[in-house]
């Protein structure tokens, strides 16, 4: 696949399939916000080429150790590499896009 993931440009990333996993803990307002936010971000930027699993750790606590979950909500970008984690309720769309490698981090900072 991509040999230089760090330097992948948004244009290259567009063609890739995204595997995302969102870990939440229960139906807290934060969880609900996170689910809503990530869904809308994905629909907007990755329409048709993403898989999003939402895992409630209260239902499946054993998954927390394997995926090294400490903070919740955590979104793990399993594919494409590199692996990334985005923590929080996904309210900062720019940062989510950086985390998903849909924005280059330095430019993002300049924009801020």
């Amino acid at each position: 696949m991509n040999k230089k993931p760090a330097k992948s440009t948004p244009r290259q990333a567009e063609s890739k399939q995204y595997v995302l996993r969102l870990f939440v803990a229960g139906q807290t307002p934060k969880s609900i916000r996170a689910i809503m936010n990530i869904k809308s971000i994905c629909e907007e930027n990755l329409k048709g080429r993403y898989v999003l699993d939402v895992i409630d750790l209260y239902q499946q606590p054993q998954l927390a150790q394997g995926d090294q979950i400490v903070a919740v909500p955590t979104l793990i970008k399993k594919l494409p590499p590199p692996l990334r984690r985005i923590i929080g309720d996904m309210s900062d769309t720019e940062r989510v896009l950086v985390g998903l490698d849909l924005r280059i981090k330095s430019r993002c900072r300049e924009n801020q």
Partner: peptide, 27 residues
């Protein structure tokens, strides 16, 4: 249980809590 956090692969977007840690510990 070893908790492994790699700062470089983490992006923060909004509020979070450590419930994941609590769940792991509780488990």
């Amino acid at each position: 249980d070893s908790v492994y956090i790699e700062r470089s692969e983490i992006e923060e977007s909004g509020e979070y809590d450590l419930e994941g840690l609590f769940i792991r510990l509780g488990q």
